[in-house]
Amino acid sequence: MTGAFFSELLKLRRRGLLLGGGGLLLGFTALFTVLGIERASKTPGNGRGFHVSVAELSRPDGLVRGISHAGTLMGIVMLGIFAAAFGAEYTTGALRNLLVREPRRVHFLVGKYLALLVFAVVVVALACVVSVVLAFALAPSKGIDTSAWTSSTGLADTWRAVWHLLVASLGYGTIGAALAIIFRSPVAALAIGVAWLLPAEAILSNLWTNGQDWLPGQLLSNLTSGGSASVSLTRTTITLVAYWAVVSIGTAALFSRRDVAN
């Protein structure tokens, strides 16, 4: 497992991925943070999108508004990164080389997954740092009071938001990895993942009253926004962990049993 972990880290240390995937994540976070602050108005917002007021941003949780808004898009990028990392093994044919060197397939899978988790944690943490720095830098120009951000409540809210964003990103990444293994293609995984998480779930949640309680994309979105009135954070977390366990076990079983014939 350690071999798979370190070899995947070696693979992740390449300029294209760091500048592309990492840059995209940092860019989204920065964009949402800047837009959130620059479009803040003196009048109260409706609580949706970027229409937040200066008063709302001055609250303890105001610091992480940008991060929370970027959650879904960051998740989609993470889905793409995980899907590319797992799917490329099939499309390049490298998987047969890799499994000759590490025939214990579950070890290989877990090591690779853990390396990607480390990558995700580092990138999400960096994105959060960028967001926080930008928020503090831009807040005075809009008259936003930042004193609440550094209060104990503010720090707790910030930590919680970062944690939720991180867990949600890993959730999106896990979906990407599972789809890539099932379909043996990064493109198919990305296309199916995005189509399901965005339009398909949006339609389903309109048709199905309890859709927000069960649909994975809705639950992940709910996690990044810190829970909602209809679905508690605890229930969201428990459901997502159950999904993660089922997906992980099922994918590992498929990967370990399926022939590598390409």
Binding site: L10, K11, G16, A94, N97, R101
Partner: peptide
């Protein structure tokens, strides 16, 4: 079959 955008040496190091 190797990773196309990675150098030959790095590909061997990964293996």
């Amino acid at each position: 079959a190797f990773y196309p955008t990675i150098s030959g040496k790095r590909n061997l190091e990964i293996l």
